[in-house]
Each structure stands twice: as structure tokens, then as C-alpha cells.
């Protein structure tokens, strides 16, 4: 066990424990805040996978953007000041059996498959490599995603807008 392994287990524990709370606690706000720790743990795992840029993007977009958006969503769709924001769950037993089987299947696939591992030397930074790839091999996807974001922005604004009286 070196420090790398310890850090991995730490981040994996943060991710999975907080993800467990995200899907089981009855309070929506608690779920949203546990999601914060899940995203943080996932970012740590990205760092351990030598993906520094993705890790920072993960924190910036997920924590700084999506999580805040979700919180605003929760706060705007519940009367938080006078009603407690608990939410029901349905189909608990069948869902847990089904997802338990799914998890067993997926984990066993991950565990027993003989992966062809060819680890390359971890680069100090993926920044330049990613930048080059984005503007050469993936430039069309990149541009399309830019367009998609613009469309999503306009669409979200027009859907959520209040109709004029």
C-alpha cells in the first residue's frame, strides 16, 4: 500500500458513501449536498488517473454549475420555507433486487474480465495533448457541442420563462 493506493481508497470511499446517501436520503436538499461530495470524490479519482484537466473541469462544471442549478431547481420547485422537503420513494424492494443483480453482474464482469492492460507513462499534464486533440481530430464534435450548448441555453431560457400575462 503506497500513498497512491491510500488516496484511491479514500476518494473511492468518499464517492461511494456519498452516492449511497444521494440515492437513499429522503431529503432532497441533503441529496443535492451529498452529490457535491460525490463529484469531489470523482474528481479525485480523475486526478489519480492522471487526468488533471478533466478533474478541474469536473469540479468547475459539476460543482460550480450543475449542482448549483440542481439546488436552485430544488429550491424553486418546493415550498422550502414552510413545507418540509421530503420526498417519497417507490418500488423500493423490486428496485433494490433488480439493481443488486445488475450491480453483481456489472462488477463481476469488471472483476473477472481479463483486461488487456498497457499502461503508458503518466504525463505531467494532459492540457496540451487535449487541446491539440480538440482542435484536430475532434474539431467537428467540439464545434457541434458549442452549438449544442448555445441551443440548450436558449431552449432552457425559453422553456423556463414565465409567460407574459
Amino acid at each position: 500500500m503506497n500513498y497512491y493506493d491510500i488516496m484511491f481508497y479514500l476518494f473511492a470511499a468518499i464517492t461511494l458513501v456519498s452516492a449511497w446517501f444521494v440515492v437513499t436520503t429522503r431529503n432532497v436538499i441533503y441529496s443535492a449536498f451529498f452529490l457535491l461530495f460525490t463529484f469531489f470524490g470523482v474528481a479525485g479519482i480523475y486526478v489519480l488517473l492522471a487526468a488533471d484537466f478533466i478533474a478541474v473541469v469536473q469540479i468547475m462544471v459539476y460543482v460550480g454549475g450543475i449542482l448549483i442549478l440542481l439546488l436552485f431547481g430544488v429550491m424553486l420547485t418546493n415550498q422550502i420555507t414552510n413545507v418540509d422537503i421530503r420526498t417519497g420513494a417507490s418500488n423500493l424492494l423490486p428496485a433494490s433486487i433488480a439493481t443488486g443483480i445488475l450491480m453483481g453482474a456489472v462488477v463481476s464482469v469488471m472483476w473477472f474480465t481479463d483486461w488487456k492492460i498497457q499502461p503508458t507513462e503518466a504525463p505531467t499534464t494532459t492540457l496540451k495533448i487535449l487541446g491539440r486533440l480538440l482542435l484536430t481530430d475532434y474539431v467537428l464534435v467540439f464545434e457541434l457541442l458549442g452549438l449544442l450548448l448555445l441551443v440548450a441555453l436558449i431552449g432552457a431560457a425559453s422553456i423556463a420563462r414565465r409567460e407574459k400575462e
Partner: peptide, 24 residues
């Protein structure tokens, strides 16, 4: 770190989450 400048912007998003948490 090579992504320093970007990291600084990202770290501030924890502040937002914390502020919302405290306020709520």
C-alpha cells in the same frame, strides 16, 4: 500544477456550494 489558473476558478465553486448550504 499545469492547470493552475483554471483550478483557481474551479476552487471558488466550492464557496458557492458552501454559501448555499449555510444559507439554507
Amino acid at each position: 500544477v499545469e492547470v493552475g489558473l483554471f483550478y483557481m476558478l474551479a476552487a471558488s465553486s466550492f464557496v458557492v456550494a458552501g454559501i448555499l448550504m449555510g444559507g439554507w
